[in-house]
Design a protein around this nucleic acid. Structure first.
Lengths: 218, 218
DNA sequence: CGCTGTCCGTCGGCCAGCCGACGTTTTGCC
DNA sequence: GGCAAAACGTCGGCTGGCCGACGGACAGCG
């Protein structure tokens, strides 16, 4: 749900066709650069060309990742969040007023934007459901099998899932702590639900047993 | 934040001017009517003419209110939620495909929709912040003073705040339980932070002391 | 005016999971 | 290779607040 929005690739293609990017400017961001904060809400629309941005909320002693943006993803800072480049990145950027004029003159842009905002909204609602209804093991299980389904490669032994997030990243994405994620993953490894495969990937023998962790009762 | 979106009134006025409602049909809903569920995602856009609708998420044994819609509020079921009339209501309704055509032909509608979705997104993010960062007393305090600021009437003794929600409603809005809300309100009454005034309103002597409950440490 | 349904107040047990702490392993960098 | 910094594993204490339970207060209705 709130893992990646890399299914925006179609939009990217469409955007290129429609010359959506007219008026956007290309910017290079250094690692760690804070593009936007709630305090300074520079309203803008952006599309990631390369790299990885982290969208997150924060209070004094905690952070919650809303999502990670990667190549092709579109985002708009309509909402008071932090946006930070976690690796050197390059993005297409436009200020909202300029974009609004574009919207007014070129109606073909509208459906793209509606879809982008719809997706942001779905992500947000999904996260709310997680926080309000599901407990940590269920959230983690869901995160993992969604990752497997969209990023994983099928092998004879099961699914090989690339995992280029730190435990802390995952924890923040799920609204929990590093310790809880770590414990759960190790416990599941002992139970044979998954195996560590090198440092940056997992092997999941059966997605179904993993999914079973997402729905305790039935 | 996620209390009411009744500040959509300006949109309503604007909508009337632009004849936004062309193509919408007026519908009367009986109390308790379920307009939409996640299972049957009838994509539609609606504007409330009168009454009150409840937008909520649910799992098997819990419900979470996302917001209450009242006269003038606009909503779109882009996202898998329940929408229910809690009192007899009448609303303007349009199916998304029809609305999309409208958007394509009349670009003046676009900014209105963008603002509506932006507001939904802000609500959602606010709720996420609450669930992830703040504990129950802080959420309740914030809910109450926001209600006071937008609905309350200034008296010599303090603010008179109409409270036409049940404890259960408030609890669901804040992602907590009836019991917790009840305990807190009564405790605060004992502490003199607020007084019950009749059955359906509160008297808050000082909003600031109430707000103090929203930020424990400093 | 009793009856029934809805709402409110309060108590106590219980537990998920946060938090601090500390040691170990990996990674990145000179 | 060697060192600092980051990331990971694990343990135990502590607690916010959920949950069930039960009784009282209102309100509507026949």
């Amino acid at each position: 749900m709130h893992a990646h929005a890399h299914h925006t690739r179609p939009d990217f293609a469409e955007a290129a066709q429609n010359a959506l990017l007219d008026g956007f400017t290309l910017r290079e961001l250094a690692k760690g650069y804070l593009l936007s904060t709630p305090a300074c809400p520079r309203n803008q629309v952006l599309m990631v060309q390369s790299g990885r941005l982290r969208v997150y909320l924060a209070d004094d002693n905690r952070e919650l990742n809303l999502s990670f943006l990667e190549a092709g993803d579109i985002y708009t800072t309509h909402t008071p969040t932090y946006v930070e480049a976690v690796v050197p990145s390059s993005i297409w950027l436009i200020e909202t007023p300029v974009f609004a004029r574009k919207l007014a003159t070129d109606p073909s842009v509208t459906p793209v934007m509606m879809r982008v905002m719809g997706r942001l909204l779905s992500n947000a609602v999904g996260l709310i459901e997680d926080l309000a209804f599901r407990e940590v093991p269920a959230r983690l299980a869901r995160f993992l099998w969604q990752l497997a389904e969209r990023r994983g490669h099928r092998l004879e032994h099961g699914w090989l899932v690339p995992l280029d997030f730190s435990m802390q990243d995952i924890a923040s994405l799920l609204g929990t702590t590093r310790q809880s994620v770590s414990s759960l993953i190790n416990q599941w490894e002992r139970e044979g639900i998954l195996q560590r495969q090198g440092r940056r990937s997992l092997l999941v023998p059966s997605l179904d047993t993993l999914k079973a962790r997402g729905a305790p009762l039935p």
